[in-house]
Amino acid sequence: MSGLPVIVDAASWLLILLGSFFTVVGGIGLVRMPEFYTRMHAASVTDTLGAGFLVLGLMLQAGFSLVTLKLLFLLALFFFAGPVVTHALAQAALHERIPPLLAEDRRGKAGAGGEPEGS
C-alpha cells in the first residue's frame, strides 16, 4: 500500500475527501429535511456520490488487485440495490397514505408534457 506515485496518492486523497463531504451532506439533509419523501432524496446523495467517491478513492489506494475488484462489487451493489430499496420504501409509504408535502402536484396535468414522448 506504500510507494504509490504522488499523483495517484493525491488523486485518492481528493476522492476520499469529496466522498466524505458528500456523505456528511447526505446526513445533514437527512436531519434537516422537513418530511419523509424529501429526506429520501438527501439519503440518496450519501448512497450515490458519497459512497461512490469514497470507494473510488479506496480503489486508487488498493492498486490493481483483488481488493479493487471487491470494491467494484461493492459499488455495483450500491448502484443496483440502492434504487430498489428506495423505491420499495417510497411505494410502501405512499401505500400507507403518508401524505407527501407538495409545492405542486403535476400528476393531473402532466399528461400534456409527458404523454407525447416515447410514442
Binding site: S12, W13, I16, L17, G19, S20, F21, T23, V24, G26, G27, I28, L30, V31, T46, G50, L54, G57
Partner: peptide, 15 residues
C-alpha cells in the same frame, strides 16, 4: 486520510 474518512462516516452515522 482514512482517519478523516472514518470520522466523516461516523459523523454521518450519528446524524
Amino acid at each position: 486520510m482514512f482517519a478523516v474518512a472514518a470520522a466523516a462516516v461516523l459523523l454521518t452515522l450519528g446524524l
